[in-house]
Amino acid sequence: MSEEQQVPFTSQQDMNQQDDTKTGDPETINVKVVSSSGDEVFFKIKRTTQLRKLLGAYANKVGKDVNTIRFLYDGTRISETDTPHSLEMEDNDTIDVMVEQVGGYSS
């Protein structure tokens, strides 16, 4: 496992991590991933790491197929090659997780 492989941690741990980050590595940011039901998972990630890794780790953690969920940053769809840097993300920013929507109207 590379050091960029992210391990999710709880919000309690995250508070400590935030303190570390503020005084520590400016190349790393904390990101909160929020599901549609409001559940939160925290990640620490390098600004230059492709978010594909975070998305995969999140899907794995919550037991979802990554193809059935969508990740949004400020309304913009996150693609696999995006990085926190390319999206101009800041420390403690939030990623929204949305689930697939369908419609046709059966009466």
Partner: peptide, 8 residues
């Protein structure tokens, strides 16, 4: 034909 469209 008849498929329900999704968000994608």
């Amino acid at each position: 034909p008849d498929g329900w469209l999704n968000d994608e």
